[in-house]
Nucleic acid binder design. Structure first.
Lengths: 214, 214
DNA sequence: CAAACTACTAAGTGAACGCTTAATTAGAAA
DNA sequence: TTTCTAATTAAGCGTTCACTTAGTAGTTTG
């Protein structure tokens, strides 16, 4: 009855593009509203496709979320892989890791939203993804090695637990961004201006590097 | 028709107790599942009362959430008020603030769950609560003053932004706890054992106090 | 070309869930 | 005792939402 949409004519039928569009839309929706707040109706509206394609390609809402998580994690991994290649001196390597961790959170804001969701659900999705589970071993090795080299050359204090240091470096950026709304209200500031982000980046670097002094 | 429950006999009809039971149950439910994941049916099941009492006393789910948030925040405030009274030397005061912030998160686990929820919803609930908005001014003043005294006596470095320091102190504990599930998976550890918590507490203290050295 | 396959659509369905209606009962006030 | 108010309950209403059914139309293949 209705006039046929122009897009139905030719050139449609692009499964890979459709899948990617759904994944992109789902990433935004899950990151913004969390798993429970997300609506698959919203995802298909953003992706401009029929709702059943979500079920055709991904099965159900939970499997869609897992697909989103795996893609997000492999992006983080890629990001960190770059870091590991740089074999500068220990202090430069550490500074690079700090800055790049913070910038990763700033530049891909969906990462934090997804992590928040995954922790509400007690990590039950990534727990079953061996890819993700083993992802951070290399990064921890890199941290340990950098730390050791710094201790050997006398620029770092000794006895620092690499795991705790890893958590701290992530915490400093993650919390600033994940809690920017409540922090904004109670501290009367806008934490997302470029100037404020630069200030935070410098502060985080100072905190960690200052702590690591012998 | 059915046998009357024993509790209906006498001694029931306790509006304050009922309200408190609902608030307690709602706090647990909202903190565990987040605002969207929480079910008011679950709240009344935990509170062992009829569902309509929730609407009778609180109006709707959102207003119930606001009531929960206000109570949670005033507890945090109370906790911090204690801190401000201690006028020990700057280093002791700072150490006390660090440890007590971490322990506050550990001892009232619902705090983090509620903050997570509130940030997903862009702080739209606490934004309209003047009580909460003004709550942290005093704490920030205390931080600023402690910092200044430490600089004057030569035990702290100068030029530290009190706001950023406040964020960092909170970040170090908050992230460790809010993300314990994903961290547990990727770092192969249990972060909730008493020993691990003590290790983290010591590490956070080292990071901040180490950073503050001149 | 025809058959088979798969991308894609339209139109539901059933269940969950927030909330309401309407009535009942306990206790306070008069 | 009667009256009034507020605490409490039972039952269900309307909507939202994840997911399904059943079909159409491009695309590939024998």
């Amino acid at each position: 009855m209705k006039a046929r949409r122009a897009t139905t004519k030719i050139g449609t039928r692009d499964p890979l593009a459709t899948k990617a569009k759904i994944l992109d839309a789902a990433t935004r929706e899950f990151a913004m509203r969390g798993y429970d707040g997300a609506r698959v109706g919203e995802v298909v509206k953003r992706a401009r496709c029929n709702i059943n394609l979500v079920y055709h390609y991904f099965g159900n809402k939970e499997k869609l979320f897992i697909a989103v998580m795996e893609r997000a994690y492999s992006r983080i991994r890629l990001h960190h892989k770059d870091m590991e290649l740089r074999n500068a001196d220990p202090q430069d390597a550490m500074r690079g890791l700090i800055v790049s961790t913070f910038r990763m959170f700033v530049d891909s804001p969906e990462t934090i939203g997804l992590l928040v969701s995954e922790n509400i659900h007690r990590a039950r999705h990534i727990k079953n993804s061996p890819l993700i589970v083993s992802m951070y071993d290399a990064l921890l090795d890199f941290m340990r090695e950098t730390l050791d080299r710094g201790v050997a050359t006398g620029v770092f204090r000794s006895g620092v637990d690499p795991t705790d240091l890893f958590i701290s470096i992530n915490a400093e950026g993650y919390f600033y961004l994940s809690n920017r709304h409540t922090l904004g209200v109670i501290l009367h500031q806008d934490f997302m201006t470029e100037a404020r982000l630069r200030q935070r980046e410098a502060f985080i670097t100072d905190v960690i590097m200052g702590f690591l002094r012998p």
